[in-house]
Design a protein around this nucleic acid. Structure first.
Lengths: 91, 91
DNA sequence: TTAGTATTTAGTTAATTACTTAAATACTAA
DNA sequence: TTAGTATTTAAGTAATTAACTAAATACTAA
């Protein structure tokens, strides 16, 4: 989770996640959506992968990236410890 | 939300939020939980407030801080757009 | 008013982060 | 093998962030 919070702090990385919501994409296809060098996007992808937010899969000369929803689920659980605080559900 | 993601990237700020989960605290009480100067904690509180994650209320010479769950709820909604993707609920 | 406590603001510095270009690696296909 | 494409790694730099100390502000109480 620690790394996920840091990964989510950057707007470029959040936009990458949004792109992957629609469909899996190669590193190059992702880079095409940004006015930024491919190495920069590659670094962002590395951080997203380290944070567990995405996974990659090599297919020939391409590297496909896709979302890993596990960490998003953990994030939801974490946030709910704040919204549920003090709500004793008719206990 | 943009500012909330940045605010949550820092471990000190996440720990402050955890402390406030138990009960509302003054700036000084919060600072007592850290091996860090009061001005540094004050800056962290300022960022948390700008992000909408906490609110403050002055009582005499003290400033009490408390959680604002609204942004946590928005965070949950945001994360669910990732976990619910592709789940068409028996449609 | 004066002194004391609580908190924030200002100014500075060190560490981290996000970008760049150039080079390396990995695969494809002639 | 050689050339071409896709991606990552390396090295360097500019911008941002997180910390500090010192000073300012705001309140309390003698």
């Amino acid at each position: 989770m620690k790394e996920a919070f840091k990964a989510l702090a950057d707007p470029t990385r959040r936009k990458i996640l949004d792109l992957l919501k629609a469909k899996d994409l190669t590193a190059g296809q992702i880079a095409d959506h940004f006015d930024m060098s491919k190495p920069s996007i590659s670094q962002h992808l590395r951080l997203l992968k380290q944070a567990g937010l995405v996974e990659d899969e090599k297919q020939g000369q391409y590297v496909y990236y896709h979302l890993n929803i596990t960490v998003f689920q953990e994030l939801i659980s974490w946030a709910m410890t704040f919204t549920d605080k003090g709500d004793d559900h008719d206990a």
